[in-house]
Every structure is written in structure tokens, then in C-alpha cells.
Design a protein around this nucleic acid. Sequence first.
DNA 1: CAGTGGCATGCAAACGTGTGCACGCCGGTT
DNA 2: AACCGGCGTGCACACGTTTGCATGCCACTG
Lengths: 343, 343
Amino acid sequence: MPGGRVRKAPTIVEIARDLGVSSSTVSRAFTAPRLLKPETVERIRAAAAERGYIPNVHARALSTGVPRTIGLIVPDIANPFFPPMIRAAQRVAEQSGHTVLIADTDGDVEREKRIIERLAAQSESLIIASSRLPSTELVELTDRRRVLFINRDEPDTARILVSARDALCRGVDRLLALGHRRFAYVGGPAGSWSEGERHGAVVEALQGTRALLRSLRIPSGTYEDTMAAGEQILLSGPTAVIAFDDVIAHGVIDLLHRRGISVPEQISVVGCDDTLALTTQPPLASIALRAVDAARLAVQIVSEGQVSEMLAPRRIALQGELVERATVGAAPETHCPGREAPM
Amino acid sequence: MPGGRVRKAPTIVEIARDLGVSSSTVSRAFTAPRLLKPETVERIRAAAAERGYIPNVHARALSTGVPRTIGLIVPDIANPFFPPMIRAAQRVAEQSGHTVLIADTDGDVEREKRIIERLAAQSESLIIASSRLPSTELVELTDRRRVLFINRDEPDTARILVSARDALCRGVDRLLALGHRRFAYVGGPAGSWSEGERHGAVVEALQGTRALLRSLRIPSGTYEDTMAAGEQILLSGPTAVIAFDDVIAHGVIDLLHRRGISVPEQISVVGCDDTLALTTQPPLASIALRAVDAARLAVQIVSEGQVSEMLAPRRIALQGELVERATVGAAPETHCPGREAPM
DNA sequence: CAGTGGCATGCAAACGTGTGCACGCCGGTT
DNA sequence: AACCGGCGTGCACACGTTTGCATGCCACTG
């Protein structure tokens, strides 16, 4: 029916009129049924269901003053790290009758600010992932709005960190136990909390050992640029490469293949995020992060408590887990300089 | 400030009071500035900006009766096909001052129905991608609501199709020109419009030629299950494999590697969606789809015209483009005639 | 039988914005 | 000088829902 008109949605007053009750009664049948006679509730709900009544969120938000909406801000929806989080957030939010509003900032600070203002005005809480905002603006924001950060470790704010630290330490320990003594860390874009944490974890785990570490970064974080950085990566003759994420690790593996270096016989590779799983050859050892748990928890935290109160500062770090696969193996005997001391 | 209170947002009446004008005037300064003296508009806008005023979307939606919201429903946010579309939709929507509400159905029909009802109630239009709803429900829906479908070809509805048809035909022609005569089509999940279109295109392109085609499907559509379907895929001894999407194509390539079959010397492979680009070895020939264009166009179409009127039925097919890469080559001379290696 | 208390429901105001209508003012025409 | 038209602004109501308070009814108690 091309020329047809959009059917107007039934409202509470229409149902009330048809049933000969007051609109308040209909309202209460949904929001405070215990105040009503059970039989009345039943009658109203039946009539509402029959007419396909759905409460108008705008009217409700306006009346109560609290929009049942949670804003979720991410740098880039198309980055495969975020969709599973978004999905998880949606699922738990809908259980408490909340709507999740998604927005992406494009990694641009100015845009992030605008988005935050716009979203804050229409949601009761904000969840901001991987914020690029300067610290001063963050704290100013947190005492005006209910906001929870993911992967941004700012003191005196509510935050959840999807951490790879413990797992990376275990990964390094494992590599040491396999005889590796020459490491390369191939980092990602500068400035993100994740890059700082991961690099820090590797450095720390190697502290006090006799092992060698060479670090570099692929600013773009792409597969292609990683392939192009061959010289840099192989410069120090590492036997183990730890990558900032799986995309970079994938680049490293293919780079090694291309140079005729076998994985893991000559060089072991460990990724992070565990997004590629079995799709590399050989299957990539990686660190599975608890991003989905973080999203769930985030929504849970912001939905509880009085919406008129700010969120209490807290720091929650969810530790990921090392998933060992075929890209990890013993260090090549021949490359190991004389001292093969057990730990 | 942990114990602090959420700052109340400034409203139109506060600004009006401070400036000694009526609230209508302030309202008009934003929605109908041409009715006001330019100087008044300027004064009000300055005061509003200074106080950080942002129009309350709920009040506005309630008052005008039109929520400036577009619902976008996809089967699965985490499916890499959709995030770029979501992103594109958001970008064009924000230019016309619309908010895009995302929801995913999990591929479940019951859930899809619930989501549609919920979203329809609070948005002025719906964009539904890859709907699994039965035809009868679709047409019933379209004469109650403003809804536009993506990748669902239902007559008498407004729809946009992200098509691979023409490009697939060209791809098959190209393979024929390269001497290929034995084809395999490895399909994806049944029931989707895309699967029907792609399989149909391949069948059609081979019609009237002397070439052989064997078709099968990987119902799960995963890399792992594709690897596991080796026997089925190689049964007819194809020299060219066309896959439903890049994930399956990736599985096929690695499967061939594992069996010592070289690509493209012995078998050529073509994917679809062009999501993996250069990350396979060798880089995968694929069909780049115009999903982003489709999303943009969809938002554009639903935002124009009177919101009280239904969308006019129309059918728009956006044709993708073949991107030829190293997995495509000439058919092997030796294998071409009768002899095939059983596995 | 009057008084009391509790339960079920109605009344009306409020949330913030948009908009049809009315009003006053000013410059120009008759 | 009376009139008119148009421009700029204010008044008041509407949108759909929630909620504090009032009201009526009933059963029970003294």
C-alpha cells in the first residue's frame, strides 16, 4: 500500500477510555501492578496486548526525568574488537529494559567531545571505551555525568580494564621456559591504554632475566604495514615475537613465511585478542580477552543504583587468558648462545 | 566527586526567563529562526551555547509526534559485514539530525518480530537488513510502518539489494576465458537472499557453456567447517572454486594448501565480500560489495519525504565489482581433459 | 451505629518542546 | 487621521506518561 498512512500507535488514554477506567490505572497496570486489584491488572494488560500497545519511551522519559538509555561510545564500530562488546551490552541492557545507543568517534578527540555531549543529554549513563580525551577533560566529565570507562585507567573514575597483563606475563614465562632468550615486541598505535599495558607487561616480565628485548611499533596497526616492517622486526634476530594484536601477529607470520623462516621451529609468535583463532597457518597462539565480560559488567554497573547519583570510582581489571597454539614452540638450539642455564 | 549529584540540564524555559523572553521565542530560535529578528536569534543562541543547552530529544519527539530516530535491524552486529554499514548509516543520519538505533536479531525470527515492534514504536522509520521474516508478515508490516529492506527481495516493498550478480557473472566469464571448465560453488547458510542470488548467478553464467558445475553448502558458514568439507569440495575435481563469502574462500585456500594443491596453479579460488583483502596467501580474488553505499542510500531514502506517508515500493540493486588477485589463474593444461585425481 | 483504617482508583499537575492563534506595534497608504 | 498589512513575539494548549494526593468504598472495631 504505497499511498497508505502510518497507523498511529494506541496510547494509554485510548485504552483507558475503552475500558472505562482512568489513564492512571492503565499506567499503573504496567509500572506498579501491586497497587491494583489483580483482576484489573489482568483486564488492562489483555486489552493492551490486543491493541498492540507499547509504552511511548519519550513520554516516559519526559515524565520520569530518566531516559532508560545507556550511551555506548567506541572509537570505531568497524573494529572487530567492539561488535561483540556492543552485542553483549545490548543483551544485558534489554533485560533491565534499557536501550543502548551506539556512537563512534572515529578516533577523533573533537568528535568524541561532541558525541559525548549529544549522547549525555539523552542517556542516563555513558560507557566510553578507549577514550582519547585528555585527563583534565575526563575528570571534569565524571563529576557532571554518570560515566564509566573501558580501557582507560584514569584515577578516581569508574573503569573496567580488559587486561592482558597477567596472561602476557605467563606467556613470556612460558617462552622463557621453552628456552627463548631473544624477544621482539611489535606494538600497535601509540597512546592507547592497551599498548601501554601490553608493552609494560612484556618489559616487566623480562626484568631480571638475562633475556634480550627489542620493541618497535606499527603505528597504523595494519597487516600490510607489518609485512613492510620486516627489517625492523628481524633486526635483533629474535626467536620469539610478541605482537600487540592478532592482526599484527598475522602480518608477522606471513612475513616470516615469505622469508622462508618457519614458525614455530625458528621463531615463535604470540598474538593478542584471539580474534583470528584457527585461521592462520599454523594456528596462532594468542591471548583471549574478556571484552564481552567487561561490556556485560559495565552495563550492570551503570544500571544499578540511583540515577541521580554519580558512579562511585572503582577499578576493575579483567584478566585475559593465554591460548597456546601451534605458533609457540621450543627455541632453536642452534641460535642459543652457549649458556643454557635452567631457571 | 564520588558523592556528587548529576547536574540537571538547562531547559528552554530557564534560558527564556534569564533573557526575559517567552519560551516559544527560544524554541523558535532553533526550529524556525526565520520567524525571529536576526538579532534575537543571535542573542538566544549565544545564551544557550554559554549554558551548554541541548534540546531534549524526548520532549521534542513527544511534542512533534515524530521521533527523529531511525531503527536499523541486522541479524548480527558481530558479523563483519554489518559494522561498516552501521557506521555509514550513522554518518549520514547525523547530518539530517537523526539518531540511528541499532538492534540485532540473532537470526531468530521470534526475536526479530519482538525487536521490530519495540523499535517501530520509537522510530520514524525502520531499515531491516537480511530479514528472515516470512513474506506474509513482511507485507503486513510494510503497510503499517515505514520500512525499507536491505538484502531481501520482496515485491511491492522498498528494498535495496547489495548484489554480486553482475560481478559474479563477469568472474565466471573470466574463469572460462582462462580455460576453466570444471567449477565448484561452495555456498553458505541456506535461506538468505544472498545465497540464492549468488548461486543463481553462477548457475546462470554457466548455462549454455559446456562447463561442469558442482554445488554444495557449508550451513554454518565457518572456516573450520569449510576445512572439514574437503572431500565434498574436491569430489568433482574442479579447477575453479567460487565461494559464497571470503571466510569460506579462506577455508578453501587453506584446505588446498594442506592437501598440497597449489593456488592458483592447480585450482583458482574466488571469494565474495572482499573483507579479507590481502590477508590470505596468496591474496584472495573477491567481489567487493557496495554495502556502505546501500546503507547510505537507505538512510537517505527513509529520511526524505513526509514521515506520515508510507515508503513507495522500489527496487534498487547495487552491483559489486570483481577484484582480481593472485588466487585466479589459468586452468592447468594437464588436468583439463579427462583425468582427475581421486582423493 | 459511628468511627477508623486500608485498599483500589481517580484527579490533576508536571516533564520540555512545538505550534496555531492572537496581539501589539510600526510604517505606509487612502 | 483612520486604516491596513505584516512582522515579531507571547499565550496557551498539546504530546503520553508518571505520581502525589484526594476520594470513595468496604470491612472491621469499639
